[in-house]
Design a protein around this nucleic acid. Structure first.
Lengths: 207, 207
DNA sequence: GGATTCGCATACGGTACCGTATGGAAAAAA
DNA sequence: TTTTTTCCATACGGTACCGTATGCGAATCC
């Protein structure tokens, strides 16, 4: 008999709880991530939760692991897709990680990084994700012909800028913020800084 | 932990509570900032707290106001000190805001910016502080002869980089992280990017 | 020196969680 | 069918807070 592979909504499994936890983490932060709140959101009681998880920390560790593996897979995917077009890929990485592109993803990032300031397990996860991202981005810069030290520096600048930007409030700073951001992306990416006005178009001279 | 401040230990006033709250904020974040915990740190009960403050929100608002005014005064001070030596001042700003320089100050920064993600009052404070800093930094770049758009862009890059760096874990990324940071400071500050190896020395060709 | 205000202690009720113990219905296994 | 396993509900004790009410000694004012 062919078993119904359709996701039966009659019961919850570990994965459901973990994904819901990531949602709550995104807009309430770690301290807003409460098992009774999660249960209420599912319309069940915490009796269900404690059948799937030993305790709250069990859920938190699972959240960290899922996030870590997802981010590592993603950065590998983002940096190995189109060989021969490395420079556009760098711009793409910058854009992908912008808060406007994925508000929820960035909120999770910020929540976990704040978490990591006080929890060693979260700090270890963040460190591993940072290492992967920095090394993947460095490889792109090296493929563009930059020396290793400069590649590492530009990678660090890239990620620090992207995350730092998501911490700031600068909507009213300039009438044309996107053009500022585009110019910055060029500074981070290109060996020689551009002059204003500069578009976000990728130079065609890359191969 | 209780009372670092030297005072006539006869009684506590509003200022004592607010400053202690900033300490806790740096360590435990907003959710760790609890009235009864603060009181215990002072060796008093919360009866004292509720004599000086209407409620917890009253304290939180006072914390935001104190932080805002302190940051605004500080950025003005940091960017108006030495006329004619603007370029070294930019490097100084970068260094001052590095996490290594003032761990506690950066922890407060991060706690308040995380706070601002969910609280409009905190968000307004962060926006005002960001506006001051960006405009003060822009002025330095403009004094160096850069056009306004580029000055604004470099200022945004500067602060985003500094804050973003404090979110990341990259101790093991390279054997000589300080040289990477120094190179990055040059990229942010100088019109033409430096080559490796580059020191953090400020070029004497300024002003 | 009595009255008043100050600065805090004590005590209380209430909320929101955590984790455990236990029961029970429904599905799966036997 | 009977048994077992799965998945969740209910109930409970405990902790850590919040904010209020009230008491109370010591300083301050009249």
């Amino acid at each position: 008999m062919p078993q119904e592979r359709v996701k039966t909504r009659t019961s919850l499994d570990r994965s459901d709880w973990i994904h819901a936890a990531l949602d709550v983490l995104a807009d309430k932060g770690l301290d807003g991530l409460r098992v009774e709140v999660l249960a209420k959101a599912f319309g069940v009681t915490k009796g269900s939760f404690y059948w799937h998880f030993k305790d709250r920390q069990d859920l938190l560790s699972a959240v960290l692991t899922l996030w870590k593996e997802g981010r590592i897979k993603d950065i590998i995917k983002q940096t190995t897709a189109a060989p021969g077009r490395t420079l556009p890929q760098i711009y793409h990485v910058i854009e992908v990680y912008s808060a406007a592109r994925s508000r929820k993803g960035m909120n999770i990032e910020l929540a976990i990084r704040d978490w990591a300031r006080r929890d060693p397990e979260a700090a270890a996860v963040v460190e591993e994700v940072d290492r992967w991202r920095l090394e993947c981005a460095s490889r792109l810069f090296i493929e563009c012909g930059l020396p290793e030290k400069e590649a590492k520096s530009r990678s660090l600048l890239l990620y620090a800028y992207v995350f730092g930007q998501s911490l700031m409030v600068f909507d009213q700073y300039d009438a044309d913020v996107p053009s500022l951001q585009s110019w910055i992306a060029d500074v981070i990416t290109l060996p020689t800084p551009p002059a204003f006005p500069a578009g976000n178009a990728v130079p065609a001279t890359q191969s």
